[in-house]
Write a protein that binds this DNA or RNA. Sequence first.
DNA 1: TTGTAGGCGTTATCAC
DNA 2: GTGATAACGCCTACAA
Lengths: 338, 338
Amino acid sequence: MKRTTLKDIAKALNTTIATVSRALHDNPEISDEMKNRVREVAKLYDYKPNSTALSLKFQKSYTFGVIFFTLNQYFTTQILSGLLQEATKNGYKLIVAESNYDPKKELELIQEFYELNVDGILILPSRKLNTKRFELENIIRDDVPFVIIDRTIYFEKKKIPFITSDDYVGTREGISHLIKKGYKRFAQIKGLDSSSISNIRYQAFLETLTRHKLEIDHRKIISCQEFTKEEGEELANQLMSLEDKPDVIFCISDMVAVGVLHALRKKGYRVPEDVAVLGFSNSNICEVCTPQLSTIHQPGVEMGKKSIKLILSNIKQKKDISDVKIVMKTKLIEREST
Amino acid sequence: MKRTTLKDIAKALNTTIATVSRALHDNPEISDEMKNRVREVAKLYDYKPNSTALSLKFQKSYTFGVIFFTLNQYFTTQILSGLLQEATKNGYKLIVAESNYDPKKELELIQEFYELNVDGILILPSRKLNTKRFELENIIRDDVPFVIIDRTIYFEKKKIPFITSDDYVGTREGISHLIKKGYKRFAQIKGLDSSSISNIRYQAFLETLTRHKLEIDHRKIISCQEFTKEEGEELANQLMSLEDKPDVIFCISDMVAVGVLHALRKKGYRVPEDVAVLGFSNSNICEVCTPQLSTIHQPGVEMGKKSIKLILSNIKQKKDISDVKIVMKTKLIEREST
DNA sequence: TTGTAGGCGTTATCAC
DNA sequence: GTGATAACGCCTACAA
């Protein structure tokens, strides 16, 4: 039941492994007769080259390591799908790991991936990885391409390519669309200040309102931590207990927006008449909730594919990708909640 | 920037790689002095053993190959999370692949995994893999453990371990609970007849009704293919256009159930007063929809963990697992739709 | 206590 | 046209 090797074939044909190897590679120096005999036996024995040996020989594993801060979100699994599709299409495998929001684990996983001789590393980091960016900068090796997906982390000296969705424009489009519809009192449920993603959306939110000469009420801008439905409910209640109630609640995630919807319904507010609710990501829950949730679509699958293309452009065409920053278009998806 | 090898350390210390290797393995034959010197240099050079070389040497990769028919469902990503947790905990990596419901691709992926020298293969097969079970049986190798998750496939000669959720008991509990509540006219939206999962739930559905001496109306039992919300809506409309309308619709998946809910609401039926709706899986959409969906919880994360434990019991303790069939408890989750 | 050499499976550079 | 051999990085039985 052991796998057949070149040696086995060589023995069977009373020749050497060198000849067998060459024959299987269709080396012109080998006679057609020998080639045929080798191929025949190879087929008979169901010979398959040993990829571990090849990895050792060529110092390449045709493997990428991928780290997700979680796989428990629709958006992240969409990215995984995209990564897988493009990777397998190009003959690469993916070793997948989940850090569960733990930046320390992310650093460890990166080290492990290097030890595994992966040909590249892609990471959807937790928000907190930014606090460990100095350690990260020291760990990252220059000879193995590294791509950061969805977030942006700035280093002292190193240049690392990023791939994100265009949350700035996405937010701007969403907000200005609502402004055009006549909404005026905008609230935002954002993430923590340490999140690059949250900050971009926050900036876009502020600047879009400012450009349209709308007042910005900072009591209507609050942060959530866990991005859960429960948190969304709680924060919505908080917002609706303000003297001057919002007529738009722009949320950091779809799940938070769903929580907001629930809270609003419980309190008897009509959506979108009294209050419009806008989510972010376009996950599978948007079509499920009532009213169906308007949101800003992030192209997860495409981002995954693009990430692999990017890393392969470095590996195959030796392109310098260290300066690359890919920003993928988002799209406003209007449903019933706005 | 090249990784340091035993050779580098040996050269630095004017000794041989054998000595270095032994010193690093704390071999008692090596003098303490040499050990210290080796360790020092190893640390200095940041030596890390080359796992590819070890794989080649020991014919083990500490890697499992995992195949998912899709990663686009909450349940499957829960399983992935469980697999990852337990695998990394035990020092194993996961190479992940997605077959996109294509049984041919599944067979190919299995072959590829063998060529990669994985130490085990786990698969959540597509329904259609059963049609290729003869080919599958021929492909599966006896020296690499193989585990089938979520579905059951029966072979001529080979014995393969399965791990599934107890859909029979889950269905029975769900249905009998509804019977106790006074519902009488049960409809089922099941999957195709070629699906082992669907059939188990179908059997449990029939037998539970029979045991409670309730009439079985076969016009109320219909199949869906894509498990989408749209299909759920369509089939619900079909069911509600029957002369004798059902007062329960038991669905093959949560997403289908959500479609049913939408259709019922559009037609003005009240849930759960006029019609109760029961889903399957307990995915994240259940709490999102209105009314919140009652469902039968499948323990995805636990199934993933258990699968790894199973395969490791074969690898580490040499246990024969070929006859194992693990059936994990489900749990009825009652929410607003029943 | 340490060194030598063979082998894991492959490719590539020499010879012949 | 084919064979022998070194090398990839590591471990280990056997020598010394």
